[in-house]
């Protein structure tokens, strides 16, 4: 995936995001402290927010171009968005949740099959359950399945593991790896956890106060995969201290 953010500028109250960059990667991590602008950037790509100025391009497709007053509507943007709270539909069964986007897409354009997703994410036994009957980890997998079955061109994951304890997180990371390897879908992956970045991403944007302060492969950013401390000078301080 080639992500191009041209003169992107978003102002929201006291917060300001400015970005002008171009990067390539299958899974691009968006890393930074709380309030750095990670979620705002993801929401700009998803189309949930509109920037004051700028252009967002994915693999040559313009998603938003304020100069031309152009923005692909949410429903035609082709992004599989998984927010931090997952936003599973509580009144629908697991099956209806995961097929919600599938029924809105043209079946002739289907590249990701239902059976394949169910198998990879191991949710076959959950399909008849209601959302309230699922554990945290099961909800995560259902949210991933729902996003995948909408046949997106890009997956946007907003801190998908932030609410899970360490043990559960270790169980879910391999599923994300499988999504990356089985479906070959580019991902933008927001996180503030270095271990997730190292395990999943091949490029990382490090954000600070709405600016991209560093862009490189994860191992060039972190001191060592064991300590997960940022190298000196990346943020001007160590966020893990």
């Amino acid at each position: 995936m080639k992500l191009r953010l041209k003169n992107l500028h978003l102002v929201q109250g006291p917060f300001e995001l400015r970005m002008d960059l171009e990067t390539t990667g299958d899974v691009i991590g968006i890393f930074g402290k709380s309030g750095a602008g990670k979620t705002s950037l993801l929401e700009l790509v998803a189309g949930l927010r509109q920037p004051q100025t700028g252009r967002i391009e994915i693999d040559g497709t313009v998603l938003t171009d304020r100069a031309r007053g152009f923005s692909i509507p949410l429903e035609r943007r082709g992004v599989g968005y998984v927010p931090q709270d997952l936003a599973l539909f509580p009144h629908l069964s697991v099956l209806k949740n995961v097929t919600y986007g599938k029924s809105a897409t043209n079946s002739s354009g289907v590249k990701i099959s239902f059976d394949h997703v169910i198998e990879v994410l191991e949710i076959e036994t959950l399909l008849e359950r209601s959302i309230g009957q699922l554990s945290g980890g099961q909800k995560q997998r259902v949210a991933f399945a729902r996003a995948l079955l909408a046949q997106p061109r890009l997956l946007l994951l907003d801190e998908p593991l932030a609410s899970l304890d360490h043990e559960l997180k270790l169980k879910i990371i391999p599923y994300l790896g499988r999504i990356r390897d089985e479906f070959h879908l580019p991902m933008l992956y927001v996180t503030h956890a270095p271990d997730e970045v190292v395990a999943l991403c091949d490029q990382v944007l490090v954000l600070q106060e709405g600016r991209c302060v560093h862009l490189s492969p994860p191992l060039e950013i972190f001191e060592a995969t064991t300590s997960m401390a940022l190298k000196p000078g990346i943020l001007g301080e160590n966020p893990n201290a």
Binding site: P83, Y100, A104
Partner: peptide, 27 residues
């Protein structure tokens, strides 16, 4: 209703009417 549910429904390919009748109204 958490507006995020409606936003996510739209990113999944649903127009405003389908979101209103399928998500908002039942909830």
């Amino acid at each position: 209703i958490n507006p995020r549910l409606e936003q996510v429904a739209r990113t999944l390919g649903s127009g405003r009417a389908r979101v209103f009748f399928g998500i908002t109204l039942p909830l």
